[in-house]
Amino acid sequence: MATVKFKYKGEEKEVDISKIKKVWRVGKMISFTYDEGGGKTGRGAVSEKDAPKELLQMLEKQ
């Protein structure tokens, strides 16, 4: 499965596409929420050019 690499609050993070719950576009950025486990929801964003094609496909399906 594909992963998304991004920075959040200065920390490098990587999340599996299957854990992503919601995806939306903000200008040229793709924002998303994902399941961190333990009932927590994380947030992240990547630029449109750095987003994996699976993430862009999720955006188109909504």
Rank of each mutant, 00 (worst) to 15 (best):
M1K: 09
M1E: 12
A2N: 06
A2C: 13
T3A: 06
V4I: 14
V4F: 05
V4W: 01
F6R: 00
F6C: 02
Y8H: 08
Y8Q: 10
K9S: 05
K9L: 15
K9I: 02
G10H: 04
G10I: 01
E11A: 12
E12D: 09
K13H: 09
K13V: 14
K13W: 03
E14K: 04
E14F: 03
E14N: 14
E14M: 04
E14D: 04
V15D: 00
V15T: 09
V15K: 01
D16I: 05
I17K: 02
I17H: 03
I17W: 01
I17T: 09
S18F: 13
K19Q: 14
K19F: 05
K19G: 04
K19H: 15
K19C: 13
I20Q: 00
I20P: 00
K21A: 12
K21R: 10
K22L: 10
K22R: 06
K22M: 09
V23Y: 03
V23I: 07
W24M: 04
R25D: 08
V26S: 15
V26Y: 15
G27D: 15
G27Y: 09
G27Q: 15
K28P: 15
K28A: 14
M29H: 08
M29D: 15
M29E: 15
I30P: 00
I30Y: 02
S31V: 04
S31K: 14
S31M: 06
S31P: 03
F32M: 10
F32G: 01
F32H: 00
T33I: 12
Y34D: 00
Y34V: 02
Y34W: 12
Y34A: 01
D35K: 04
D35P: 09
D35F: 04
G37W: 14
G37I: 14
G37N: 10
G38F: 14
G38V: 11
G39R: 05
K40A: 09
K40G: 09
T41W: 04
T41R: 06
G42Q: 09
G42A: 06
G42F: 12
G42P: 11
R43M: 03
R43S: 10
G44H: 02
G44L: 02
A45G: 09
A45S: 10
V46A: 09
V46R: 02
S47N: 15
S47M: 08
S47E: 13
S47A: 11
S47P: 14
S47L: 04
E48V: 11
E48Q: 05
K49D: 15
K49I: 15
K49M: 11
K49L: 10
A51D: 02
A51R: 02
A51V: 05
A51Y: 01
A51E: 03
P52W: 01
P52Q: 08
K53L: 15
E54R: 05
E54W: 06
L55A: 02
L55T: 01
L55W: 02
L55P: 00
L55S: 00
L55N: 00
L56V: 13
L56I: 09
L56P: 01
Q57V: 09
M58G: 02
M58Y: 08
M58R: 05
M58H: 09
L59T: 08
L59Q: 02
E60K: 06
E60T: 04
E60W: 02
K61Q: 12
K61N: 12
Q62S: 15
Q62P: 14
Q62L: 07
